[in-house]
């Protein structure tokens, strides 16, 4: 079975899916990512799907699950690089990928994560009551 590599760049885990994943590979990726988030303590996950020519309901569900898991582990997930044809198909399929944050490309995705982390920092610095951030910092 093929395995999708997970790269660590600074405070971000980058997953670039380059193969047509079998369902098993997708499930494996989900497990690998959860482990790496805990092991590295990263607060951002970028999943680059530029190379994917389709996203079906299984992969869609995997993306949602990864986003939920990483949220529990205090990491922000951004899915980047979805192709127009894939987005149109997903809308027709009826999959809205609720709760997943998206960006046009890796660069925009990194900006998004940086912005989210800056917010966390701002809030704790300003000493605003913010349950989300006080627990971890």
């Amino acid at each position: 079975m093929e395995r999708v590599p997970v790269l660590k760049i600074g405070d971000i885990l980058l997953v670039s899916i380059q193969v047509d994943m079998s369902d098993q590979t997708a499930v494996q990726l989900q497990e690998d990512l959860a482990e790496r988030i805990v092991a590295t303590g990263c607060h951002g996950v970028i999943i680059d799907i530029t190379a994917l020519d389709i996203v079906d309901s299984f992969v869609g569900r995997m993306l949602s699950t990864i986003a939920s898991i990483s949220r529990v582990l205090d990491a922000e997930t951004v899915v980047v690089g979805m192709r127009p044809a894939v987005a149109i198909t997903l809308v027709e399929l009826g999959l809205s990928l609720n709760g997943i944050r998206t960006a046009l490309n890796v660069e925009r995705g990194m900006e998004l994560i940086a912005a989210a982390q800056a917010d966390d920092y701002d809030y704790s610095a300003e000493d605003e009551p913010d349950d989300e951030t006080t627990a971890t910092r």
């Binding site: 979805m82 809308v91 998206t102 960006a103 046009l104 995705g109």
Partner: peptide
């Protein structure tokens, strides 16, 4: 509406 939803999926 579909265009707007598709754009959101892409991050726009």
């Amino acid at each position: 509406l579909k265009t707007v939803v598709a754009a959101r999926l892409m991050g726009a």
